[in-house]
């Protein structure tokens, strides 16, 4: 069993399944309504030479993207205007099955988290794990046991490769 990045962060018997980009892409592509939440940690993050924002915008053609308000400026500068809301606030909306979503079409089936402080993401995943039917996936560098699916603990380069791979798989289909 994979050990959480913060080794003491063992929630209990139910822990995330470790996924490769291939499996992650497969799972995501099967899901109906999905959303990706991007945290403050994406600031300055690059995939190869490209800013990660470019990849996220690419992905926004496949799923709803919500970003932390503190990184909204980066997107505005690129001419995009994703929904911006604090992760605690969004998670609070998500746990309400009756919530109609940002587009008014209903709540989401799966939510992916990326770029949050490890412990904050862990706690938000825990909310949805216990208080919603939404499936969750953690796309960060570190294994998050409270998600349903998570990348393994990865070295920086490995993770970049994984992420790039995931995006291209999702875009290909």
């Amino acid at each position: 069993m994979t050990i959480p990045w913060f080794s003491a962060n063992i929630p209990g018997p139910k822990q995330a399944r470790v996924v490769t980009p291939e499996i992650a892409a497969k799972i995501l592509s099967k899901v109906g309504r999905k959303m990706m939440l991007c945290g403050s940690g994406i600031k300055g993050q690059k995939i190869g030479k490209e800013p990660i924002q470019k990849y996220i915008l690419d992905l926004s053609k496949e799923m709803s993207v919500v970003v932390a308000p503190s990184v909204l400026k980066d997107f505005l500068e690129m001419g995009a205007e994703p929904v911006a809301k604090g992760v605690v606030e969004v998670t609070n909306l998500l746990r309400d099955a009756e919530w109609r979503g940002f587009d008014g079409k209903g709540n989401y089936d799966m939510v992916a988290y990326l770029g949050f402080p490890y412990y904050l993401e862990s706690q938000m995943l825990s909310v949805l794990k216990h208080f919603s039917d939404i499936k969750t996936m953690s796309l960060g560098r570190f294994y998050q046991p409270n998600a349903d699916y998570s990348f393994d603990n990865l070295k920086e380069k490995e993770w970049e490769k994984n992420f790039e791979n995931l995006i291209s798989l999702l875009r290909r289909k």
Binding site: P11, G12, P13, T91, R95, M124, V127, H130, F131
Partner: peptide, 9 residues
């Protein structure tokens, strides 16, 4: 209240 359990146990 929105709960985020730190531990499931």
């Amino acid at each position: 209240p929105m709960y985020a359990p730190l531990c499931d146990l």
